[in-house]
Design a binder for these strands. Structure first.
Length: 503
RNA sequence: GGCGGCAUAGCCAAGUGGCUAAGGCAGCGGUCUGCAAAACCGUUAUUCACCGGUUCGAGUCCGGUUGCCGCCUCCA
């Protein structure tokens, strides 16, 4: 099967052909380290995490580079505010970023370069552009001359004339063309600086990505990614810088993820609706957040709300309920090590046959522009199949059925791993969920357990009235009980609108 | 002003020329259960914003209309 995905450069889905067979080189624009991550950073990270994991799942050897921007106006401003230096600021937020992303189940990229570790490379690159006549120096600043690079605009689908006609370009006296962008900024007082052929200064924003990607991946590499907002000007400028210097194609494929909205509004600082990732992780299991994000296509906008996240929690519960049932049945310890697929018959054979197609269906969906939404649909199908098998009157734990359930679980977990889902032990998952929800809704777990214990006594004595009374008390607190023959488990129902997403 | 995207059931959401328009949530009916919960079964879009066109055939392609959104300034 061949992988196709949407290439922003060609504006259509294209078959993926790596530069070097069996290897994929991928660069994604990371964060500017000056503040805590929000849910939008998380979406981008999850999207490219899944893409990277899927490429590996397909057998590619993937080198994934994601940078940290650690020199920038906002970092400098923050450092001044706190009377410290940019290193301390960027190191702090890189640490926080890593902490959050680790919790989100985002695997660390192969290489995470920082801009300040690549200044020499940037200076060399800028020098090349100046030598080639693509850049010019004005009072210690170096600008890229946009009209000297004929491909300018090919990624974002613009042309210079149209852009010049646009009203919102800041006029900088030093620029020959208002669309020219800065490669090297001369240092102002109190700013960090590096020596360069043009005097003391620091790099412009775009140059770092051209230089760091090519340093680790070569002049031409496979995939370059980032958020949709980066298409213009950032990625357009990266192409101009890189191809201008080398004369060779830069990245062959460009992938851009869609944006996050909060209650149907754009998430932005001015609207004050930034959904902080640390807070999100306090309110929702990371896999709930991932499931929600991955149920939409990566290029579509995704709209966070407490309702939509509550729905995702319900969905995640469904998966883990099934995984829990399988776990419990497997715990009976019946030995199924001698069972072969050809020994199966009837329902066992039927379910086994269907469940083993899951990885193929998963790959079919993922090969089509990383269609995680469709892939998740197939996992829901598989879940219903397993639950139906388990709920059937004829179901009994036998060597054959344990063999089938074990295969089912392996298949679900195999594809789940690519999406970063079902990584938790089911009992762990529900324990964590209870704790998190109890805290969110101000409930005391000890109290709940005490009431359940009291009710259990009533139940064994068949005092149903008393048992129902306690059920009702708990129901008012959104505690839902689940009775089995000799015990009771519980969970907390979704309580939407109690907890505003963004305060 | 320029460039681009989206519009599919109550809600979310797949679907990019052709078998019955995935899947989830919510709802309803049933099975199971002391009662519940979960699960399962059944049910919920003759129709894909609207109007034309291309085609044997369109949610899917083309043109237009309406509505929503993003980028063009730092932004994932």
């Amino acid at each position: 099967m061949s992988l196709k995905f949407y290439n922003t450069l060609g504006k259509k889905k294209e078959e993926f052909k790596p530069v070097e067979a069996g290897r994929v080189s991928m660069y994604v624009c990371g964060i500017t380290a000056y503040d805590m991550c929000h849910i939008g950073h998380a979406r981008s990270a999850v999207v490219f995490d899944v893409i990277c994991k899927y490429l590996k799942y397909k057998g590619y050897n993937v080198i994934y580079v994601k940078n940290f921007t650690d020199i920038d106006d906002k970092i400098i401003a923050k450092a001044n505010e706190e009377d410290t230096d940019i290193i301390e600021i960027s190191e702090r937020y890189i640490k926080e970023h890593n902490k959050d992303m680790d919790e989100m189940g985002v695997a660390r990229p192969s290489i995470t370069p920082k801009a300040t570790e690549n200044i020499k490379g940037m200076i060399r690159h800028i020098s090349t552009l100046v030598e080639k006549g693509l850049a010019y120096v004005v009072e210690g600043n170096v600008f890229f001359a946009v009209d000297k690079f004929k491909g300018y605009g090919k990624l974002s689908g613009r042309n210079l004339d149209d852009m010049l006609a646009g009203a919102r370009i800041d006029i900088n006296e030093k620029k020959k063309n208002p669309l020219d962008f800065i490669l090297w900024k001369s240092a102002r007082d109190g700013e960090p600086w590096w020596d360069s052929p043009w005097g003391r200064g620091r790099p412009g924003w775009h140059i770092e990505c051209s230089v760091m990607s090519q340093r680790f991946l070569g002049e031409t590499f496979d995939i370059h990614g980032g958020g949709m907002d980066l298409i213009f000007p950032h990625h357009e400028n990266e192409i101009a810088q890189a191809e201008g210097a080398t004369g060779k194609p830069f990245a062959n494929y460009w992938i851009h993820n869609g944006f996050v909205r909060i209650n149907k509004e754009k998430m932005s600082k001015s609207l004050g609706n930034i959904f902080n990732l640390r807070e999100a992780l306090g309110s929702y299991h990371p896999e709930v957040l991932r499931l929600f994000m991955l149920q939409s296509h990566y290029r579509s906008p995704v709209d966070f709300s407490d309702e939509s996240l509550a729905e995702a929690r319900t969905g995640m519960e469904r998966f883990y309920e099934t995984l829990k049932k399988i776990k419990d049945i497997l715990a009976t310890g019946i030995d199924f090590s001698d069972i072969l697929p050809k020994n199966l018959s009837g329902k066992d054979k039927d379910v086994f046959g269907k469940i083993t197609t899951l990885p193929d269906r998963f790959a079919e969906a993922m090969d089509d522009d990383f269609n995680t939404a469709r892939a998740i649909g197939y996992i829901f199908d598989a879940t219903r199949l397993i639950n139906g098998y388990l709920a059937g009157r004829k179901f009994a734990p036998t060597a054959e059925s344990l063999f089938v359930l074990n295969s089912a679980r392996n298949n679900v977990k195999k594809v789940g791993k690519v999406l970063g889902l079902f990584l938790e032990d089911p009992d762990e998952y529900f324990e964590k969920d209870k704790k998190r929800e109890a805290e969110k809704q101000g409930l005391n777990i000890q109290e709940i357990n005490a009431l359940i214990e009291e009710r259990q006594k009533a139940r064994t004595a068949k005092k149903w009235k008393k048992a129902d009374e306690i059920r009702n008390i708990l129901a008012k607190k959104k505690v839902v009980l689940k009775d089995t023959a000799d015990s009771t488990t519980w969970k907390i129902a979704n309580l939407v609108k109690n907890q505003p997403l963004v305060r």
